[in-house]
Amino acid sequence: MSFEGPWPYIYIAIAGWLATDFWRWSGVIAGNRIDEKSEVLNWVRAVATALVAAVIAKLIFFPTGTLESSPLWLRLGAVLAGALFFFFGGRFRQILGIAAAIAFLAAGLAIIGA
């Protein structure tokens, strides 16, 4: 097999699908058997929420790459703008929250010239 052109990408897509598809179907099957109000599911939700919060905190306080050149107040402002649009965004709150945070950060970086 030649690794030129689209073949590496096709290989990665197939290998990634095979490696994760079993776990996806296992989650679907197990998820149908778990009571929505069970302690196990509450624990899973708490762990998932904590992981997302940890990633966001890391991006705010210990950024890498391009985000590292932005000041802390700008990163915190972007989170605040995203949160406000999320909570008051209505039906499209997720998209609005993400777009508002990105727009705030981009505008701030353009203004300060970073």
Rank of each mutant, 00 (worst) to 15 (best):
2 S>W: 07
2 S>R: 12
2 S>V: 11
3 F>R: 14
3 F>M: 15
4 E>T: 11
4 E>H: 11
4 E>I: 06
4 E>P: 01
4 E>A: 13
5 G>I: 07
5 G>H: 06
7 W>D: 09
11 Y>S: 13
11 Y>R: 13
12 I>P: 00
13 A>M: 13
13 A>N: 10
13 A>E: 12
16 G>K: 11
17 W>T: 15
17 W>N: 14
17 W>I: 15
19 A>M: 13
20 T>F: 13
21 D>L: 14
21 D>A: 14
22 F>C: 09
23 W>I: 12
24 R>D: 08
25 W>V: 07
26 S>V: 08
26 S>E: 11
26 S>W: 13
30 A>V: 09
30 A>F: 14
31 G>M: 06
31 G>F: 09
31 G>S: 09
32 N>G: 13
33 R>D: 15
33 R>T: 15
35 D>Q: 14
35 D>P: 09
35 D>N: 14
36 E>K: 15
36 E>T: 12
38 S>N: 09
38 S>W: 04
38 S>C: 08
39 E>G: 05
39 E>H: 11
40 V>K: 14
40 V>A: 11
41 L>A: 07
42 N>G: 14
44 V>W: 15
45 R>V: 07
45 R>Y: 15
46 A>E: 02
46 A>V: 06
47 V>P: 05
48 A>N: 12
48 A>V: 07
48 A>F: 11
51 L>W: 10
51 L>M: 14
51 L>S: 13
52 V>F: 15
52 V>A: 13
55 V>P: 01
55 V>R: 05
56 I>F: 10
57 A>W: 00
58 K>S: 05
61 F>M: 01
61 F>V: 01
61 F>G: 08
61 F>I: 03
62 F>D: 06
63 P>I: 05
66 T>E: 06
66 T>G: 07
68 E>F: 08
68 E>V: 05
71 P>N: 12
72 L>N: 10
74 L>G: 03
74 L>F: 02
75 R>H: 00
76 L>I: 09
77 G>R: 03
79 V>C: 10
79 V>Q: 05
81 A>W: 02
81 A>N: 01
82 G>A: 00
82 G>K: 02
83 A>N: 06
83 A>L: 12
83 A>H: 06
84 L>H: 00
84 L>D: 03
84 L>W: 00
85 F>P: 00
87 F>M: 06
87 F>Y: 13
90 G>H: 03
90 G>F: 07
90 G>Q: 03
90 G>R: 04
90 G>N: 04
91 R>T: 08
91 R>K: 09
93 R>D: 04
93 R>Y: 00
94 Q>V: 12
94 Q>R: 04
94 Q>N: 10
96 L>P: 01
97 G>A: 05
99 A>S: 07
101 A>L: 08
103 A>H: 03
104 F>A: 02
104 F>E: 02
105 L>H: 07
105 L>D: 04
105 L>E: 07
108 G>E: 05
108 G>W: 03
108 G>D: 05
108 G>T: 03
108 G>F: 04
109 L>W: 12
111 I>Y: 02
111 I>G: 03
112 I>E: 06
113 G>M: 05
113 G>F: 12
